[in-house]
Design a protein around this nucleic acid. Structure first.
Lengths: 195, 195
DNA sequence: CTCTATTTTCAGGAATATCTGAAAATTGGA
DNA sequence: TCCAATTTTCAGATATTCCTGAAAATAGAG
């Protein structure tokens, strides 16, 4: 590997972490190199940096492009293609989450819905369905939250995350100010997000 | 595989998804079986259900126990050990996130902090550090949010998630009600969560 | 169109990860 | 203590994933 020590340390760690996330170590390393690079790199520069084969880089870049994680760039009068990562790290995370959701969560929701439609043929299946229903509702709750929060501009998102659970305090305050007739027990257990 | 069709479909899908998450397919299947089971199962019942070797089940269960994802149960007058999953699916997700954080995020934060302490020896390293700083701040923001939100009781958590980005509306309202002297520009860009 | 730099593909070898059966270890009861 | 049921370990077999070099495909310049 042919990188400044600091970059190398990061690249190695990132590759390692990637491999715990079902991402090919090399692909993780390629992304790490591009992430810390000062400017977009071409395939051969990545080969040079990581000391892996050209074909491996090609496959890795293709994989990353399938994930929408790269910004390709063409240089005038140069036939090679250069690649960088988005400057905005929030954009990167949004893409990552979107893609993982598309590949893993959405198919799971589909299966769960299919299985919940079936009429159970035994107590075992009835019980399984009850469990799957819980899972389905939880996933819907979380993806619903994400879909909503995803629309926020970064500034607002940061504000929201910085607040953490303190928003609950604000909500309580709101509830007190505009006290509902029903008193404190505004339940939100089921999947409805409520208008 | 020896399971009711509905369970089998779920188990297969879950194993498949697990393997995309860096989790051994079989381990995922074992958890899926336990998740939908009506009662805790012993190792041989899992062998029977999944059609895999006894030793494989043993290793899988050990793995799941390392993740704190199982509820072991002993039956009076039976030497075998039985395993179930927590009834509360929110508890399961909390454990999952906690463990993943411990294994993946925390070490990453450690590395990032180490690298940010170093004095850059070149422009390349200086630029890399700037990038790593962005990443570090983002991760701190997210883990800070999680640490905070994690403390909420499930009921409150559901309420919070159900609101999604609507809390931002509430925050705006709060800001209007208690208008700060400085006007609208309360910035929250840096890592401080603000008391 | 031709030429050449560049990228992509892919068969097969290398490296990892997973799984199994057999043997060892553990454990609770007699 | 000893015994038998149960669990765990682990070396080697199997399966999967990853990587490479060579060959094919692509694409821009002339």
């Amino acid at each position: 590997m042919n990188l400044p020590p600091l970059c190398e340390a990061f690249v190695l760690h990132f590759g390692e972490m990637g491999s715990r996330w079902g991402i090919n170590r090399t692909v993780g390393q390629i992304y790490a190199v591009l992430f810390v690079a000062e400017k977009p790199l071409c395939a051969d520069e990545i080969v040079e940096a990581l000391g892996i084969s050209r074909s491996n880089v090609s496959m890795g870049l293709k994989e990353l492009q399938n994930w929408n994680l790269l910004k390709p760039k063409h240089v005038q009068g140069d036939r090679r293609e250069f690649f960088g990562t988005p400057d905005d790290i929030y954009a990167i995370v949004r893409t990552l989450v979107d893609e993982r959701k598309k590949r893993e969560i959405d198919p799971t929701l589909t299966i769960l819905r299919e299985l919940l439609m079936q009429s159970p043929g035994s107590d075992a299946e009835r019980h399984a369905q009850a469990r799957l229903k819980e899972m389905h509702e939880l996933i819907e709750l979380m993806t619903g939250w994400y879909a909503d929060v995803q629309k926020l501009e970064t500034e607002r998102l940061i504000q929201l995350l910085s607040m953490g659970s303190k928003v609950v305090k604000v909500l309580e305050m709101k509830d007190r100010l505009f006290a509902l007739p029903g008193g404190k027990g505004r339940r939100a257990t089921s999947s409805q997000a409520g208008g």
